Amino acid sequence: MSDLSQSMSASVSGMKSQAARLRLVSENIANTDTPGYRRKTAAFENIWQAGQKTGDVKLGDVKLSQMALERVYDPSHPMADETGHYDGSNVDLVVEIADAREAQRSYEANLRMFDQARQMSSSLRELLRR
Protein backbone atom coordinates (compact mmCIF):
# COMPACT_ATOMS: atom_id res chain seq x y z
CA MET A 1 0.00 0.00 0.00
CA SER A 2 1.38 3.39 -0.92
CA ASP A 3 2.08 6.05 1.69
CA LEU A 4 -0.76 8.20 0.36
CA SER A 5 -3.18 5.29 0.57
CA GLN A 6 -2.02 4.51 4.10
CA SER A 7 -2.51 8.11 5.20
CA MET A 8 -5.97 8.19 3.64
CA SER A 9 -6.84 4.92 5.35
CA ALA A 10 -5.62 6.27 8.70
CA SER A 11 -7.71 9.40 8.20
CA VAL A 12 -10.83 7.42 7.38
CA SER A 13 -10.40 5.18 10.42
CA GLY A 14 -9.89 8.28 12.56
CA MET A 15 -13.07 9.86 11.23
CA LYS A 16 -15.06 6.67 11.82
CA SER A 17 -13.70 6.39 15.36
CA GLN A 18 -14.44 10.03 16.19
CA ALA A 19 -17.97 9.66 14.77
CA ALA A 20 -18.53 6.63 17.02
CA ARG A 21 -17.14 8.58 19.97
CA LEU A 22 -19.50 11.45 19.20
CA ARG A 23 -22.43 8.99 19.21
CA LEU A 24 -21.42 7.88 22.72
CA VAL A 25 -21.20 11.49 23.89
CA SER A 26 -24.63 12.17 22.38
CA GLU A 27 -26.10 9.20 24.23
CA ASN A 28 -24.58 10.46 27.47
CA ILE A 29 -25.98 13.96 26.98
CA ALA A 30 -29.42 12.60 26.06
CA ASN A 31 -29.50 10.52 29.26
CA THR A 32 -28.25 13.18 31.67
CA ASP A 33 -31.56 13.19 33.53
CA THR A 34 -32.21 9.44 33.31
CA PRO A 35 -32.19 7.90 36.81
CA GLY A 36 -29.49 5.26 37.25
CA TYR A 37 -27.77 6.01 33.92
CA ARG A 38 -24.01 5.49 33.91
CA ARG A 39 -21.76 7.44 31.56
CA LYS A 40 -20.42 5.44 28.60
CA THR A 41 -16.76 5.71 27.62
CA ALA A 42 -14.47 3.99 25.13
CA ALA A 43 -10.76 4.21 24.37
CA PHE A 44 -9.10 4.15 20.97
CA GLU A 45 -7.16 1.05 19.94
CA ASN A 46 -4.55 0.54 17.23
CA ILE A 47 -5.40 -1.89 14.45
CA TRP A 48 -2.81 -4.60 13.89
CA GLN A 49 -2.31 -6.59 10.72
CA ALA A 50 0.23 -9.39 10.37
CA GLY A 51 1.75 -8.43 13.73
CA GLN A 52 2.32 -4.77 12.79
CA LYS A 53 0.43 -1.56 13.43
CA THR A 54 -1.38 -0.34 10.34
CA GLY A 55 -1.70 3.27 11.50
CA ASP A 56 -5.46 2.86 11.65
CA VAL A 57 -7.48 3.13 14.85
CA LYS A 58 -10.85 1.96 16.10
CA LEU A 59 -12.98 2.69 19.10
CA GLY A 60 -12.58 -0.03 21.69
CA ASP A 61 -15.19 -1.67 23.87
CA VAL A 62 -17.75 0.58 25.52
CA LYS A 63 -17.39 0.72 29.29
CA LEU A 64 -19.68 2.16 31.91
CA SER A 65 -18.26 4.72 34.31
CA GLN A 66 -17.89 3.45 37.85
CA MET A 67 -18.19 6.93 39.34
CA ALA A 68 -20.83 7.21 42.03
CA LEU A 69 -24.31 8.12 40.85
CA GLU A 70 -25.64 11.48 41.95
CA ARG A 71 -28.12 11.27 44.84
CA VAL A 72 -31.15 13.39 44.02
CA TYR A 73 -33.67 14.52 46.64
CA ASP A 74 -37.21 14.45 45.28
CA PRO A 75 -39.75 12.73 47.57
CA SER A 76 -42.41 12.91 44.81
CA HIS A 77 -40.30 10.89 42.33
CA PRO A 78 -41.60 7.32 41.83
CA MET A 79 -38.08 5.89 42.35
CA ALA A 80 -37.47 7.78 45.61
CA ASP A 81 -36.69 5.68 48.67
CA GLU A 82 -38.03 6.25 52.18
CA THR A 83 -35.65 9.22 52.64
CA GLY A 84 -36.90 10.89 49.45
CA HIS A 85 -33.68 10.22 47.46
CA TYR A 86 -33.05 8.32 44.26
CA ASP A 87 -29.96 7.63 42.14
CA GLY A 88 -29.56 10.07 39.26
CA SER A 89 -26.98 9.75 36.49
CA ASN A 90 -23.23 10.29 36.73
CA VAL A 91 -23.07 12.34 33.50
CA ASP A 92 -21.36 15.73 33.78
CA LEU A 93 -22.54 17.99 30.96
CA VAL A 94 -19.37 20.10 31.04
CA VAL A 95 -17.22 17.00 30.47
CA GLU A 96 -19.52 15.74 27.73
CA ILE A 97 -19.51 19.06 25.88
CA ALA A 98 -15.71 19.19 26.09
CA ASP A 99 -15.51 15.60 24.75
CA ALA A 100 -17.90 16.48 21.93
CA ARG A 101 -15.79 19.46 20.90
CA GLU A 102 -12.62 17.41 21.02
CA ALA A 103 -14.19 14.66 18.89
CA GLN A 104 -15.48 17.23 16.40
CA ARG A 105 -12.10 18.92 16.05
CA SER A 106 -10.30 15.60 15.71
CA TYR A 107 -12.80 14.58 13.03
CA GLU A 108 -12.15 17.83 11.17
CA ALA A 109 -8.36 17.35 11.43
CA ASN A 110 -8.69 13.84 9.96
CA LEU A 111 -10.91 15.21 7.21
CA ARG A 112 -8.27 17.84 6.33
CA MET A 113 -5.54 15.19 6.33
CA PHE A 114 -7.66 12.99 4.02
CA ASP A 115 -8.29 15.92 1.69
CA GLN A 116 -4.58 16.81 1.57
CA ALA A 117 -3.63 13.21 0.73
CA ARG A 118 -6.33 13.13 -1.97
CA GLN A 119 -5.04 16.38 -3.48
CA MET A 120 -1.44 15.12 -3.42
CA SER A 121 -2.52 11.88 -5.09
CA SER A 122 -4.38 13.82 -7.77
CA SER A 123 -1.37 16.08 -8.34
CA LEU A 124 0.90 13.05 -8.62
CA ARG A 125 -1.35 11.49 -11.26
CA GLU A 126 -1.27 14.77 -13.22
CA LEU A 127 2.53 14.83 -13.08
CA LEU A 128 2.77 11.22 -14.24
CA ARG A 129 0.47 11.90 -17.22
CA ARG A 130 2.88 14.51 -18.64
Rank of each mutant, 00 (worst) to 15 (best):
D3H: 09
L4W: 00
L4R: 00
Q6I: 13
Q6T: 14
S7L: 14
M8V: 12
M8K: 04
S9R: 13
A10H: 00
S11N: 05
G14D: 08
M15P: 06
K16Y: 11
A20N: 06
A20Q: 07
R23V: 13
L24P: 09
S26H: 01
A30Q: 01
N31Y: 03
T32H: 00
G36I: 00
G36S: 00
Y37C: 07
R38I: 03
R38F: 03
R39T: 03
R39V: 01
K40Y: 01
T41M: 08
T41K: 02
A42W: 05
A42N: 05
F44I: 05
F44E: 13
E45W: 02
I47H: 03
Q52A: 15
Q52S: 13
Q52D: 10
K53T: 10
D56L: 10
V57Y: 09
V57S: 06
K58C: 07
L59Y: 01
L59Q: 04
G60I: 12
D61R: 08
Q66E: 08
A68E: 06
E70Q: 13
R71M: 11
V72R: 02
V72G: 05
D74T: 00
P75T: 01
S76G: 07
P78V: 10
M79W: 05
A80I: 15
A80F: 15
T83W: 11
V94D: 10
V95P: 07
E96A: 08
I97F: 14
D99N: 15
A100E: 13
A100S: 14
R101M: 08
R101W: 04
E102L: 15
Q104N: 12
Q104K: 12
Q104D: 07
R105M: 14
R105N: 12
R105C: 09
S106P: 11
N110E: 07
L111R: 08
L111S: 15
L111D: 06
F114D: 14
F114C: 08
Q116H: 11
Q116D: 09
A117P: 02
R118Y: 09
Q119E: 15
Q119N: 12
S122N: 11
E126N: 08
E126F: 14
E126T: 15
L128C: 02
R129I: 13
R130D: 09
